[in-house]
Design a protein around this nucleic acid. Structure first.
Lengths: 332, 332
DNA sequence: CTGTTAGCGCCTTCAT
DNA sequence: ATGAAGGCGCTAACAG
C-alpha cells in the first residue's frame, strides 16, 4: 500500500501532527525529530493523499481546460502554453475538448467543479454568463475567445472582427468589389464576428454588402468545396472569396481548381487562422493570424492570479490584436 | 456552499445513509422516501464530492495522459480520440505534455498517482519498465509508442522501423543509392527505430550504410535547414534525403531550394509522420503515416479494460502497421 | 514544543 | 427498511 502520514509518524517515532508540521513547515519542531521525520518520509516515499487535502478544503491542484474540438496546431499550441505555466506552478491540467452538445458541455463543466481550483473555458457557442451560472460563484474562471455578455468576467479574446475587417480592406485595395464570404457555423461567435467585420469593411468603403454573396458553411473543408458552385452561379461572379477560416478556404481553392479556375488569377481566396499549412500550400494563403501563444499565457496567468486570490485583479475582457498575413492567394 | 449529502438528508427528512442508499441504489428503500430523496437531491443540485469518494478508495474518475511535447495534429488528434472515449465512459482526462527533463517527467507522473485511476503514457526517452517502477504496482497503465523492455506490460506501438524500411526501399527502387538520413534526437526511440529501418533496408539491398550520410538533427525544421550544408558537402552528394520526420523534411526542402536546388529533380526528400501539411505543400511530401486514431482508441480501450479489472486482458505490446505514402517530393 | 481530538463528505458495517 | 457510528488521510484547533 501507499504510505500514509501514520506510517511516517510510526517510523519516526512521533505523532502524526508532528509529521504534518514538519512536512508543511507549519510550526517549529525539535531539530532532531524534524530530521527523523524527513528521513522517514523520504525513505517511505511519502506523498500526502490529494483527496484528503481537497476534502479539507485545500487546493485540488487541478486546473480545468475546456475547449471545443479544434484540430491541429491551435489546440496543441494553446494547450502547450498553458501546460508549461501550469506545471511550473505545481498544478496539473484537466482537459476536455469533446462536447457534441450544449447539454454535454454543461455536464462536463459541472463534473469538473470540485476537481479543479479554476477553469479556462473557450466556449464558442455558449456565452460566458451562462457558463458562470452553471458553477458556484467564486470559482475562478478565465474565458478565452468567448462572447462575454456581462461585466465582472475575465476573458482573453482576440479581435476576430478587426482581423476580418482589415483582411476585407486588403481585398478592396486589390480592386475587388464582388467579394464572396463563406460563413462559419451560425452559433459560433468567431464566425459571426468575422462576418461582421467583413460587412463593416465593405460598407465603410462604399460597397453595399450583398446577402447573396454570403454563403453558408461550417468551417470544414467539405463546406468550402460545397460552397463553390453557389459562388460561381452568382452574376456577376465574385472575384474574391473570403472564407471564414483557413480550412474551408482550402476547400474553396480545391473546388475552384476543379472548375478550371486559377487562384488567384481568376478568383482570389483568403482565410482566417493562419494554420501552418497556409505558409506552405500552393498557393500560399492570405489569412489572419490569431495570437495563440499570448492567449494561452495570458489566460493561465490571469487564472493563477485569481486562484491566488489577489483581489486587485481586473475583471475584464482583454482583446488581443490580430494580424493580416498577405500571401499568394490574393496576389493581384 | 455546495450542498452535501447532509443537506439532502435534511431536506428529505431522512438520514444520510438513506440518501446514500437511494443515490447509489445500494439497497432497497421505501418508495416514498426514495422519491423524496431524489427530489431533494435534484432540487439542491447535489453531486457527491469526488474527493470524499476517492478518499474512500473509490474511483477518482480521472485518466492521466502523459505525452512528450508534440506539435500539431498528432497531439490534437490523439488526444481527441482519447477524450471522446474517456468522457463517454464517465472519466475525465488529466493531461501533461511538457517535461523538459526525465526528472520532471518522473515528478509529474508520480504527482498524478492518486489523482487518476489509470495512465496512458507515451514515453519516447524512458523505457516502460522504468516508468512502472516509479508507480505502485497495480495502477493500470497502457504505454503508447514506448520502448517496452519487459513482459507483462501493455502497449500500443506503431512500426517505426518497418515504415522507415519500406520508405527507404521506395527510394532505392527509384534508383537512389546515396541516400542521406537526417536523424532525430539521440534519446528518442522513434528516431532510433527509424534509423535502424533505414540502415537495414540499405543493407538488404546491397548498399552499405555510410555514417557520413547520417546527419544529426532533432526533429525541428531548423535542424533540417541546418543539416543541408552537411549533405551538400558530401562527395558524391546524396541524391535523396530521408528526414526522420516531416517537420525537419520541410527544413531540408527549404534549405535545398535556398541553395538553388530543385526538389525532387535535384534531390528527392522524404519524411515521416504524414502531418496534414504534407498533403498540400509544394511539392507534396512522400512520408510514412502512423495510425494515430487507432493508437488513441486502442490505448484507451485497453486501459478501461484494465481499470474495470477484466483480468483476461492480454498484457502485451500491440504494434500497429504504418503506411508509406508516395507523393511528389520523391517523384523520379 | 508535541500529542490528542474533531471534523472535511461519504460509504459501509452494525444494530435496530 | 433505516438510523447511528466508524473510518478513509489529513490539517487545525486544543490541551498539555
Amino acid at each position: 500500500m501507499v504510505p500514509t502520514i501514520r506510517d511516517v509518524a510510526q517510523r519516526a517515532g512521533v505523532s502524526i501532527s508532528t509529521v504534518s508540521r514538519v512536512l508543511n513547515k507549519s510550526a517549529v519542531v525539535d531539530e532532531a525529530k524534524r530530521e527523523r521525520v524527513e528521513e522517514a518520509a523520504e525513505a517511505l516515499g511519502y506523498r500526502p493523499n490529494p483527496a484528503a487535502l481537497s476534502l479539507l478544503g485545500h487546493s485540488t491542484g487541478g486546473i480545468g481546460v475546456l475547449l471545443p474540438y479544434i484540430a491541429g496546431d491551435f489546440f496543441s499550441e494553446f494547450l502547450h502554453r498553458i501546460d508549461r505555466l501550469t506545471s511550473e506552478n505545481g498544478y496539473f491540467l484537466v482537459v476536455s475538448s469533446s462536447h457534441r452538445s450544449v447539454k454535454e458541455f454543461q455536464a462536463v463543466i459541472q463534473g469538473l467543479n470540485r476537481r479543479v481550483d479554476g477553469l479556462i473555458v473557450m466556449s464558442t457557442e455558449v456565452p460566458a454568463q451562462t457558463v458562470c451560472d452553471w458553477l458556484p460563484a467564486g470559482l475562478p474562471i478565465v474565458f478565452v475567445n468567448t462572447e462575454v455578455d456581462r461585466d465582472g468576467i475575465e476573458a482573453v479574446n482576440f479581435d476576430n472582427r478587426g482581423g476580418a475587417y482589415r483582411l476585407t480592406e486588403h481585398l478592396l485595395e486589390r480592386g475587388h468589389r464582388r467579394i464572396g464570404f463563406l460563413k462559419g457555423p451560425d452559433a459560433s461567435c468567431d464566425a459571426n464576428d468575422r462576418l461582421d467585420g467583413y460587412r463593416a469593411a465593405l460598407r465603410d468603403h462604399g460597397v453595399e454588402p450583398d446577402p447573396a454573396l454570403e454563403v453558408p458553411g461550417d468551417f470544414t473543408m467539405e463546406a468550402g468545396e460545397a460552397a463553390v458552385p453557389a459562388f460561381l452561379a452568382l452574376d456577376p461572379r465574385p472575384t474574391a472569396v473570403f472564407a471564414g477560416n483557413d480550412l474551408s478556404a482550402y476547400g474553396v481553392v480545391s473546388a475552384l481548381r476543379g472548375a478550371g479556375l486559377d487562384v488567384p488569377a481568376d478568383v482570389a481566396v483568403a482565410g482566417f487562422d493562419d494554420i501552418p499549412l497556409s505558409r506552405f500550400s500552393s498557393p500560399t494563403l492570405t489569412t489572419v493570424r490569431a495570437p495563440v501563444r499570448e492567449m494561452g499565457e495570458g489566460a493561465i496567468e490571469r487564472l493563477l492570479a485569481q486562484i491566488k486570490g489577489g483581489d486587485g485583479r481586473d475583471r475584464r475582457v482583454v482583446t488581443l490584436g490580430t494580424e493580416v498575413v498577405v500571401r499568394e492567394s490574393t496576389a493581384s
